[in-house]
C-alpha cells in the first residue's frame, strides 16, 4: 500500500469514529439515559442533605456522605454498578451492530469501502468512549454536588487513615478507570451478542440477563468453584482502591478477568461479523 493511500484510510477511520460517536451522543434516547444515570447522585445528595438526622447505615458509602462530598460520587457509583451502568452499556453495545442491521443500514456500511474489521473496531471504540463517559458522568455529578452540599477536605479510607483531597480525587479517578474497564468487558460481550442478531433489544436484554445471572450466581456460596470466572465477580474490588496502601489482591485478577473477557468476545464478534452474510 502506498503512503498517500494509508493517510486516506487513517482519515476515513477518524471520520468514521467521529460519525459513530455523533450517532451515540446525538440520540435523544441516550440523553435520557444519561439523565437517569446523573439523577442517582443528585437524589442521594439531596436526600441525605434534607434528612436532619444525618445518614445512619445504608448501602455503600451512604453513611459517610456527610463527612466528605467525594462519598456522594462513591455511593452513587456503588449503587449504579449492579444495574444502571450495565443497562447503559448493554444498550449501546447491543445496538452497535444489531441496530444497524435492524434499520437496514449495516449493508450500506459494508458496501461502502469500509472493512468489516474496521467497522467492528470503530463500534468497539465508541462503546469504550461511551462507557468511560457514563462512569465519569456519575462520578462528576456526584463530586460537584457533594462538594457543593457537604464540602471537600481529606478523604477517610477504609483502613481508617485519611488522604489529602487531591489524593482522594486521584483515587476516585482510579476507581472510575477500574469500573470502566469492568463495564467495557460487559460491552465486549454485548458487541458479540449484537453481531448474532438483528434485534438490538434482544441483544441488550441478553447482556442484562447475563449480568444479573452472573451476580445471582456470585451470591450463591455453593457455586464458589465458578465464582472467579463470572464477569461481575471482581466488580466491587474497586473498594481495594480505597485502602491505604492500595491493595492489589482483588484488583489484579479483576483487571485480568476483564481483559480476558474483552479479548475473547471481541475476537468472537470479529469472527462472526467477518463471516456472516449481511443482507439487511
Amino acid at each position: 500500500m502506498s503512503a498517500p493511500e494509508a493517510t486516506v484510510r487513517a482519515g476515513v477511520s477518524t471520520r468514521f469514529l467521529r460519525s459513530e460517536l455523533w450517532l451515540v451522543y446525538g440520540r435523544r434516547r441516550n440523553w435520557v439515559g444519561a439523565l437517569v444515570l446523573a439523577s442517582v447522585p443528585v437524589i442521594l445528595a439531596v436526600a441525605v442533605r434534607l434528612s436532619s438526622s444525618g445518614a445512619q447505615g445504608g448501602p455503600g458509602f451512604l453513611d459517610l456522605i456527610t463527612s466528605n462530598g467525594l462519598f456522594v460520587a462513591l455511593a452513587a457509583l456503588t449503587l449504579e454498578l449492579p444495574l444502571f451502568l450495565p443497562v447503559a452499556v448493554a444498550t449501546i453495545a447491543g445496538d452497535a451492530v444489531a441496530g444497524e442491521a435492524n434499520l437496514g443500514t449495516l449493508r450500506y456500511l459494508i458496501v461502502t469501502p469500509v472493512d468489516r474489521t474496521r467497522l467492528l473496531a470503530v463500534k468497539f471504540a465508541a462503546m469504550v468512549v461511551f462507557t468511560i463517559s457514563a462512569t465519569v458522568l456519575v462520578a462528576g455529578v456526584g463530586v460537584l454536588l457533594g462538594l457543593a452540599l457537604f464540602g471537600g477536605g481529606p478523604l477517610p479510607t477504609l483502613s481508617g487513615t485519611t488522604l489529602s483531597f487531591a489524593e482522594g480525587l486521584g483515587r476516585l479517578a482510579l476507581i472510575c478507570g477500574y469500573i470502566s474497564l469492568c463495564l467495557v468487558a460487559l460491552g465486549a460481550i454485548g458487541l458479540f451478542v449484537s453481531t448474532l442478531t438483528e434485534q438490538p433489544i434482544g441483544a441488550t436484554i441478553t447482556v442484562l440477563v447475563l449480568t444479573l445471572a452472573s451476580q445471582i450466581m456470585d451470591a450463591i456460596p455453593q457455586l464458589s468453584a465458578i465464582h472467579e470466572y463470572l464477569p461481575t465477580h471482581y466488580w466491587l474490588a474497586f473498594g481495594d482502591l480505597l485502602r491505604d496502601p492500595i491493595a492489589t489482591e482483588g484488583l489484579r485478577p479483576g483487571i485480568l478477568s476483564a481483559l480476558a473477557y474483552v479479548a475473547v468476545f471481541t475476537t468472537a464478534a470479529w469472527a462472526r461479523l467477518t463471516t456472516r452474510d449481511i443482507s439487511s
Binding site: G60, F61, T78, L158, S159, G160, L236, A237, G239, D240, R243, A247, E249, G250
Partner: peptide, 8 residues
C-alpha cells in the same frame, strides 16, 4: 488488616 468487601 482483615479485608472485607468495602470494609476493613
Amino acid at each position: 488488616s482483615l479485608h472485607g468487601e468495602m470494609g476493613e
